[in-house]
Design a protein around this nucleic acid. Structure first.
Lengths: 200, 200
DNA sequence: CTGATATTTGACCTCTGATTCAAGAATATC
DNA sequence: GATATTCTTGAATCAGAGGTCAAATATCAG
């Protein structure tokens, strides 16, 4: 069946684009630090339209977090399925995240980490969303390590799940560290992490 | 020389006590989330007195962060100078922090970590303060590991400084994780961390 | 007691945040 | 064209934030 134009005045902006813009604002300024006025301006629409389309700041944030989840998962998959050993892949993954952060004009870290800290304790729905997002990352990492284990890339004794959880937690820590230390300091810790987990 | 009572009406509250109360509020609600009204009420004084004594919310926060620094350093020293092997000491240190967090009615993590994320990117002074505070922790941990190295507690090949930096970053990650995961999940990662660093 | 100095207080002020809304604009159906 | 429906917008609303201030209060020095 063919879709006919919906009745009424047609939307003059794309929701997904608006969400992507809002995501950038939330990512840079945090939830509380992002005003409806800013969000609307970034999306190129009026405040009213924003509320009409998304209901509330909180709902918009939920959508932005979902979008972040999707693009983030894509990036991890891409980086972990690249060439090289397990160790090299994981190192590339970690250094890429760190470098991307430092290459940006503002150090904004990871939206999930920022959100966990800002809202994780007060908003159960957000906490669950962040947890799901984190679990996804853990699973992808675990799968890559397990692959390495089967291929003889990493010791057969390694617990892929445990190491994956550990690495994701470590990444969160690096994201925090990146707020107050410089690139070199953070990259050195990446090095220590990789060496400690996978051996010299 | 003896101190005479200063001229004028004497202060009716203790600054350090007020700072300690303010620290609790900032710790629980974050910087932006703590209103002058709340801070004054927690300190048991009027808003006016608070501004008279501390100048601004920002300055009060600086003092609160200093207080946190001092008490935090004391705790680390105490835990790391306890009995047991290096591995046991570090484990005790990490589990104590995690347990303390989960035993509290609200999960508020570590004020330094929270601050790094909330203000680290925008306020250079705060970033420096957090960095100093972190460095202090790193140094104390490094000293304990170095002691273990000399006592044969840990492998002679271990780089105490690098491992200390790594452990502090990992702790930051655990603090983030504690916002969205439960106690068991976090303690398991502590276990993985300790085992990975110090061996099984 | 009379200043002089410091502290305390809540009322007050200004600004911004999140949200709602009435009016207008663009499209569909008939 | 008339009517229904949906989207757009900035003005209006209400609350709360951060900060200031004058008046009241409590101590000093002479």
């Amino acid at each position: 069946m063919s879709y006919r134009q919906a009745m009424g005045r047609p939307k003059q902006f794309d929701e997904d684009t608006a969400i992507a813009q809002a995501m950038q604002v939330f990512w840079t300024n945090g939830y509380a630090g992002s005003s409806p006025a800013e969000l609307a301006e970034a999306a190129g629409i009026g405040k009213g339209s924003l509320y009409h389309a998304f209901g509330s700041k909180r709902e918009l944030f939920g959508r932005a977090l979902d979008a972040y989840d999707r693009t983030g998962a894509e990036l991890i998959e891409e980086l972990l399925s690249g060439p090289g050993s397990t160790k090299e892949c994981v190192r590339t993954y970690m250094t890429t995240l760190v470098d991307t952060d430092f290459d940006a004009p503002v150090r904004r870290g990871c939206l999930a980490v920022n959100t966990a800290l800002e809202l994780g304790g007060r908003d159960a729905d957000v906490a669950l969303a962040v947890r799901r997002l984190t679990d996804r990352g853990v699973d992808l990492l675990a799968a890559r390590i397990e692959r390495g284990r089967l291929e003889g890339d990493v010791p057969a004794s390694m617990d892929a799940g445990a190491q994956a959880r550990f690495l994701v937690a470590a990444m969160a820590g690096l994201r925090v560290m990146a707020r107050t230390y410089d690139r070199d300091a953070v990259l050195k810790v990446v090095d220590t992490t990789i060496t400690t987990v996978f051996g010299a």
